[in-house]
Design a protein around this nucleic acid. Sequence first.
DNA 1: AGTATTTGACCCAT
DNA 2: ATGGGTCAAATACT
Length: 198
Amino acid sequence: MDKITTTTFTIDLNTNPMHNSCQTTQHNDLIEELNRVKSENKELNNMLTIVRQNYDGLLQKNSDEEEQSRTRKRKLLAEETGIIGHNDLIKDKSSVNYHQCCCDEWSHCRPKEIKPNVSRVHVRVDPSDMSLVVKDGYQWRKYGQKVTRDNPSSPRAYYKCSFAPHCPVKKKVNTCCFKLIFFHINEKDKEPKYTLVT
DNA sequence: AGTATTTGACCCAT
DNA sequence: ATGGGTCAAATACT
C-alpha cells in the first residue's frame, strides 16, 4: 500500500496592525522628503535664474566697455594716421546693406547682400616709412604684389582683411613718395565715397 | 605642420 | 594689346 504523507503549510499574512502603521509612517516620511526636495529644487532654480541674469548683465557691461575702449582706440589711431577703420566704413555706407557691428567681431559682420558699391579711402602716412607693411591696427593678408607702369620702382601690394574668411574689405598700398591706401568694399562703383586726405 | 608671403600666370576691362 | 587685379602653387617662416 502507498503511504500518504500530509504536509502542513503556515502562511503569514502579516496583518499585524502595528506593522501597517509603520509602513504608512514611512510613506508619509517619503512624501514629506519629496516635497522638501521639490521646494529646495525650486529655490535653487530661482537662484540659478538670478545668477544667470547677473552673469548676462556682466557680459553685456563688459562688451559695452570693450566696445567703447575699441572705439576710443580707433579714433585715436585715425587721428594719428588718418586711416579709417572698417567700422567707420561700414557705418558710413548707408547704401550697402551691412550688419552694424564691431570690427573685432568681424565674423558677425558679413554683408547680408553684396551690392554694386565701393568705398575708398586714400591716406597719406609717414613719408619716411617706405615699407609695405601697414601698421593700422587691423589684420591683413597679403595676396599679391604688382610692379606698376607709373612707378616701376615702387611695387603695389594687395591686402585682404583677415578678420574673417568672408570679409570683403581690401587694401592697396603703394610706396613712392608716400603710402597710398585704398579700402574696397566691392568692385563696381567707380565713385569714391571718401575724399583724398592731404 | 600650419600659416604667411612671394611671384608667375591668368582673367578681364579698357 | 595692355595694364591692373586676383589666384594659387611654391616657398619661407615660426
